[in-house]
Design a protein around this nucleic acid. Structure first.
Lengths: 236, 236
DNA sequence: TTCCCCTTCACCAGAAATGGTGAGGTACGG
DNA sequence: CCGTACCTCACCATTTCTGGTGAAGGGGAA
């Protein structure tokens, strides 16, 4: 009778990404939700999603790069608390256009999203989408949001555990000196300053930057620092 | 009768860090827990804690820099899921010494911690500490862990909302073009490439980079991109 | 021992980034 | 209507970074 416990048990046995997809579909049915989305982006840019939207919409979304204008994605990345879609900023024209498109793709008018963060900059969104009026939606939210927050976090943990899931994408570790160099660069020092701080010649410093760049496949210093940062290889 | 709901309501009204401290004490009493700790560290190194340990222990902990050897802190930073302290690695000598000291300071033998992550690299630990035998502790954990996970996340959200809390350090928002520019730079493009991608002259591009730098107080492009990244102003 | 990685240093020419200043236009809120 | 913020472009001297190559000693793993 306890949906939450049932769902947790269903999740506990999941061992593959396919099972997560099945889980999401089951969750949708058990809670009588129109659509559910779990979407994770790890620091390396690797993505994984388990969702109940139509393939057409998903393809269109990816194809058009809608994640760059979707107020849900943009709004949640800076947030830490679950948020109702109504509270987001839909005033910009691209946002309104996107809203119209999503509606024609069959998405409901109501929704909320739970931002979730993991180690090394992993970020995931767990979203609920529903076609409903404001009153019923408010009631639904009040009743279900606690359960869904818990499930969202459990699901994220599961997704991170699973081989090949959003948690993969190992980047070769940086040597201590390489970390020092990139960290000081990220802090705003130029090469001369970093070399001085590290008490090495600028030539030596360059070797570190370049070997770090090489390891991460970065095309220049800015890229290397950005990559190290998003991969959690350095902390500023 | 529903403790979880009561606690959520108690949290909802909190407006200051002092109230969080009071909340933690109330939570301890309501759930009959020996000790509770909420401890947050933001990306800038700013710290905040609300806890029920004795002042002596807290001072000693800070003074001796125990966060560097405490297996709870060290173990949780790499994790994303709640963990029982028994499952941590206590084999190193400093860890065992630390354990002995904590026991003489009145801490219980059982505990678990919930790692929580927020935007911009914020990291918090919500820990429960109890003096109990294994059986009763297992039962307690099973019954309460769900509630406490939720409360931990609510509490972190609250702490981040509160003025002067772990979330301080607002940075002026970037304009869309500034974000585009920094994002493309973070992705490894050089200025020529970014200008081309954005369909603007390199001169114009420079204005964006410089105004972004100015807004964030960054001393060069690398610094600007790193700052934007760590503050969640751009997403790569 | 051999091999690989880390740390350290040097030289150099050419490519790229920087800093500062000036100036046109649009858009929005007070 | 005015101020402020945003978007766009230009010029130029100077500093800084990049790419490529070569080399030596230390440490750990196979």
């Amino acid at each position: 009778m306890n949906k939450l416990v049932d769902m947790q048990e269903a999740l506990a046995s999941a061992r593959s990404l396919e099972e997560l997809q099945t889980f999401v579909e089951g969750l949708r049915d058990v809670y009588s939700i129109d659509n559910l989305v779990y979407h994770s982006v790890n620091a390396s840019g690797g993505q994984y999603a388990a969702l109940t939207y139509s393939n057409e919409w998903v393809e269109r979304y990816i194809d058009k790069g809608y994640e760059r204008i979707d107020p849900v994605v943009q709004g949640c990345y800076k947030r830490f608390t679950p948020i109702d879609w109504k509270a987001l900023d839909w005033s910009a024209k691209p946002s309104r256009d996107f809203l119209g498109e999503s509606a024609s793709a069959g998405l409901g008018n109501q929704g909320f999203s739970i931002p979730i963060r993991g180690p090394s900059g992993q970020f995931a969104l767990f979203s609920v989408n529903q076609k409903d009026n404001d009153d019923r939606w408010a009631k639904f939210t009040e009743e279900r949001v606690s359960d869904l927050i818990l499930i969202a976090h459990y699901m994220n943990e599961k997704a991170l555990e699973i081989e090949g899931g959003p948690n993969q994408g190992p980047v070769r570790a940086l040597s201590p000196r390489e970390k020092d160099a990139l960290t000081l660069l990220a802090l705003g020092n130029n090469r001369a300053g970093v070399a001085e701080a590290l008490n090495i010649s600028e030539n030596t410093l360059r070797v570190y930057i370049e070997s770090a760049r090489f390891k991460m496949g970065a095309s220049n210093t800015v890229h290397a620092v950005a990559t190290a940062l998003t991969h959690g290889l350095i902390v500023v």
